[in-house]
Design a protein around this nucleic acid. Sequence first.
DNA 1: CAGTCCAAAATTTGATCATATTGTGATCAC
DNA 2: GTGATCACAATATGATCAAATTTTGGACTG
Lengths: 230, 230
Amino acid sequence: MNQLDLIKNKASSPQAESGKQPAHEQVYQTLRSQILFGELVPGQPVTIQGLTDSLGVGMTPVREAIRRLISDGALVFQGNRRVSVPLLTSDDIEQMIFARISIESELSRLATANLQADDIDHLEHIDKQLDHMIADGDVGGYLRLNQAFHESLYSHANAAILSDLAERLWLRFGPSLRVVCGRFGTQSLPDRHKDIISALRNGDAEKAAKATAQDIEQGMELISESLTSG
Amino acid sequence: MNQLDLIKNKASSPQAESGKQPAHEQVYQTLRSQILFGELVPGQPVTIQGLTDSLGVGMTPVREAIRRLISDGALVFQGNRRVSVPLLTSDDIEQMIFARISIESELSRLATANLQADDIDHLEHIDKQLDHMIADGDVGGYLRLNQAFHESLYSHANAAILSDLAERLWLRFGPSLRVVCGRFGTQSLPDRHKDIISALRNGDAEKAAKATAQDIEQGMELISESLTSG
DNA sequence: CAGTCCAAAATTTGATCATATTGTGATCAC
DNA sequence: GTGATCACAATATGATCAAATTTTGGACTG
């Protein structure tokens, strides 16, 4: 894809460890995945020393990663010096529904014009795998592929700032979404992706935006219901 | 010599125990203000050691503060280990116009119902001072009061997540807005605040949202024009 | 005598710093 | 221009200090 990336990777080939990223970056990415895919439970405390032990790195990289995640809204600072995975209120969900629909609909709208046929094929491929995950009841697989679908779509919008805002919102509800899936199973999960794909193939940006909004609303309402019932 | 001056000037805070905050938090707040109010120039490099020297604290707190600001989008990591104040493209501005209008209009809409008469008086008071700053050509004062106006308004929306998203966007364009003001002077600066206040007094949420959107669009277009002309 | 409550020690966790190591960009010789 | 070398900045660790939580022990009350 990008020539510059290949060149940059080549320069660091001596250490063939697939990436000579600094430790604080690796810690950040690790925690980010764990939060995004619900491997951490809402309310769970996160300690610096616990992470230095389990990840085998020093305190400074862990601290930096935690600060970044707090800034992302993926972790919350508890007033005393404790840090934990956020517990969402239904009011939080309301705000996120609004923000996600505003931003991600626009991302779909922008992406529509830039998508080539094979890009859409790729999205369809992801969605097919997604169906299998839902059928198999594989919650982790669902979360990863659902995220991959949206990220892949939004990446074609060429809108770094809007994508960044969207990513932050995903980090906020990741843990809660996992809980919902664990409670209700994968059957009730939304998948308006077929509608999105069909709109993309027709080059209909408005329809793609609308379908994205519906996909978002269904998923978020599920979390909201889970909160009120629990 | 003046290493603590920047930190100590938080004395305006009503709480006397502002010295109780950890150093990394103070460094973050200091840098945040400097970025938000344009005391740092777009493109300017930011070094860890430079800040440890000038602020008189160790490297760890500085590192944490910088990571947070990178996550905020207020600073950018340059691929190599360099960090600098972001340079915006006109495409960035486009995205920010969209995001700000979406989110901040909603914040105005939500705030309308919650505002008491004396809250609106307070907003009007801020706006009156703002007029003086514009007349005097005080760019720094304009930036601070403009930010205070919007923050004060949005705080009544009781929407932490949306406010957080808005804050991040403000951090991104702060340095560039300062440059614009320096170039064009304060005369051309937008101020639809009178329209906002009048709508708030009438309890007209839609009109408040609309006036907010106009205020945002005018301000951002100014930055955009400055980019293309420069 | 048992249970509760409070205070103070002990333990755990966080915050900061000093220092060693590593990587980057720049300079200078060739 | 190319390549070795040098200076500087960033990264990472462990030590040290401070704060908060938990545990513990004893006294007091019922």
